[in-house]
């Protein structure tokens, strides 16, 4: 029965349309993901406590918004379910960067998209954008990883695969 249940997990995942999925608060570990105040966050600290000496365990999460870097906190009973964002990473080959900062990307199957911009908004993001522009100017071939969660997307990693 459990096997069927497992199989089912993989199948629903395959359908994969939802932005979030439920997970027991007690199972969410440090470096995992969680939704707090409708924002997709990465957990940087989790501690458990009890309400009074003989209450049930509660989890205290400290988490950071994966797109903006803003800090959030939340307290949830350990046995309750939390919303966990479907954080998806997809790799693309970078084809071009235009002057406005729009990039042209191509996936494994050869489909291209031109709707993403270089990352911006924080110091780190600007640094990464600078790296990408430099590599592009040097004619290096790169793979970029696009992080997608709850309807937002952002380039968050670059890797040089060949020098041209």
């Amino acid at each position: 029965m459990a096997e069927a249940h497992e199989h089912e997990t993989f199948e629903t995942a395959d359908a994969g349309a939802s932005k979030t999925y439920p997970m027991q608060a007690g199972s969410i570990r440090k470096n995992g993901f969680i939704v707090i105040k409708q924002r997709p966050c990465k957990v940087v600290d989790v501690s458990t406590s009890k309400t009074g000496k003989h209450g049930h365990a509660k989890c205290h999460f400290v988490a950071i918004d994966i797109f903006t870097g803003k800090k959030y906190e939340d307290l949830t009973p350990s046995s309750h379910n939390c919303e966990v964002p479907n954080v998806v990473r997809q790799e693309f080959t970078l084809i071009a960067v235009d002057e406005e900062g729009y990039v042209t990307l191509m996936d494994d199957s050869g489909n291209t998209r031109e709707d993403l911009m270089l990352p911006t908004g924080t110091e780190e993001a600007d640094k990464l954008a600078g790296n990408i522009k430099d590599y592009y100017a040097d004619g290096k071939e790169m793979l970029v990883t696009v992080l997608k969660a709850m309807g937002e997307e952002m380039i968050n990693q670059v890797k040089v695969i060949a020098e041209q």
Binding site: K30, K42, V44, I64, I66, G69, E124, A125, V158, K159
Partner: peptide, 15 residues
């Protein structure tokens, strides 16, 4: 090897 990645906040970088 050789991946440069972005983490929006210091805490995430440390993580």
């Amino acid at each position: 090897l050789g991946a440069v990645s972005l983490e929006a906040a210091k805490a995430l970088r440390e993580g």
